[in-house]
Amino acid sequence: MGNADQNESDVIFILLGFSDYPELQIPLFLVFLVIYIITVVGNLGMIVTIRFNPKLHTPMYNFLCHLSFIDFCYSSVITPKLLQILVVEDRTISFAPCITQYSFASICVVTEAFLLAVMAYDRFVAICRPLLYVVVMSQKRCALMLTAVYIWGMISTGIFLYSLLILSFSGTKIINNFLCEYSAILSASTSDKHVTETILFILANFNTFFTLIIVLTSYAFIFVTVLKMHSATGRYKAFSTCASHLTAVTIFYGIILFLYCLPSSKISWLLVRVNTVFYTVVISMLNPLIYSLRNKDVKEAIRKLLEMPARWCSG
């Protein structure tokens, strides 16, 4: 740890971003700026909508409220720096801001993965064990699950962070992307990386596949239960309550598995950057849109919220 402290102040990272496409810098800046504005408005709007509508004070919408909060935080950690490097010549970032960006982004990613798993479990209980739903998903138990999700996000990131900070760093390193991520920071180290890489492999795979197993298992039971329903209306209602979450989960894990499970030799750096954009920037914008467009309760709550100023003016 001491060696790292002595030279980490001299470490400089250069975020290449999309600098190899100079003619696209301004168009990309405008596109990402619009995406960020929609993300902020959409996620904060979702939080306000849920908090101000008593009808939405249920476990499912409480989890959705936290998902919107995490998406807002994640986008705010990544997108401002992306916008900056698109319009300025200086794309350097020192060690401390780089490790800070990585830390907050990691907390958001791990927390979101486990929150999506908790939301899948919530749908499993609602559809497969409806008579026990109020007991199983009590306010106290939901609070405990949410607390556990946030705590594990911080613990997991703390382990990742410790595994990096025990290394020694020096020199200027190029990151062929627009954000500070684990492997890029690791490449700047002059120490033996075997232990750190082992920690990354074990913990990252645990987080990904443990949460994915919970999601897949929950939906396997949901699918079987729905197929056994005799009423077509009941089947439609059950599937409709899961549609938004299933869409969000498919996009989230689909991009993660594409990015990290395919050999790097099979995909170009441009494709990696494009997928990273979807993973870090676009998903945070899509989630509130998916839930607001596919959920009748949320659409109705948004409509009522938008009508409030008109009612105040007329009153």
Rank of each mutant, 00 (worst) to 15 (best):
N176Y: 10
M145F: 14
F72C: 04
T225L: 09
S156Y: 10
I155C: 13
L30S: 03
L28E: 11
M145K: 11
V215E: 00
L132W: 03
K266S: 11
T49G: 02
R273A: 02
L116M: 15
N3S: 06
S268I: 08
R303Q: 09
E112H: 03
M229K: 12
I50R: 07
I127N: 06
V77P: 05
D20Q: 15
L186I: 13
F206E: 02
T92Y: 05
Y121L: 12
L179V: 15
G171Q: 13
H66M: 07
L259M: 12
I93L: 14
I47E: 01
M229R: 10
A243D: 02
F201H: 13
A310M: 10
V118T: 09
F32Y: 12
A148L: 10
C142G: 11
V110Q: 03
I85P: 07
N53H: 09
K173Y: 00
V136S: 06
V282N: 01
P288S: 03
T280Q: 10
P59C: 06
I35E: 04
A243E: 09
V11T: 12
I37Q: 00
G153N: 10
V125S: 09
F160A: 07
M119Y: 00
I283K: 04
C313F: 05
V118I: 12
V31M: 15
S231R: 06
S138Q: 11
L44E: 08
M285V: 01
I202P: 00
P54H: 01
T58L: 09
F278A: 15
S138L: 14
T39G: 08
K193P: 04
A120H: 07
E112K: 13
S170I: 04
S231V: 12
A238F: 00
T250L: 14
L15I: 09
L67F: 03
I290T: 05
F201M: 14
I159Q: 06
D20M: 13
M119C: 09
V118Q: 06
I283S: 01
F206Q: 02
K228R: 13
F209M: 14
F124Q: 05
D10A: 14
T157M: 09
L15R: 10
W312F: 08
N287V: 09
M119S: 12
N177Q: 13
M285Y: 03
F206I: 14
N275W: 06
V41Y: 14
N205C: 07
K55W: 00
A184E: 15
V281A: 04
Y253K: 00
L216D: 03
F201D: 11
S218K: 13
C73R: 04
T79W: 12
K266H: 05
V11P: 02
R141T: 10
T100C: 14
L16Y: 14
Q6R: 14
G254W: 05
F223W: 04
I283Y: 07
V281W: 03
L24A: 13
V281C: 11
I70D: 07
E112N: 06
G42N: 07
V215Y: 05
V249G: 02
L257D: 03
P22Q: 07
I99F: 12
F209Q: 13
K237M: 11
I35P: 03
M46C: 11
G45I: 12
P130A: 15
C65D: 02
L30M: 08
H66D: 01
L186A: 12
F221Q: 08
V135N: 15
Q101G: 13
Y253H: 02
A113V: 11
M154Y: 02
S168H: 00
R51N: 12
I214Q: 01
T280M: 11
I99Y: 08
G234Q: 13
C313Q: 00
S19E: 11
A120I: 10
T39H: 05
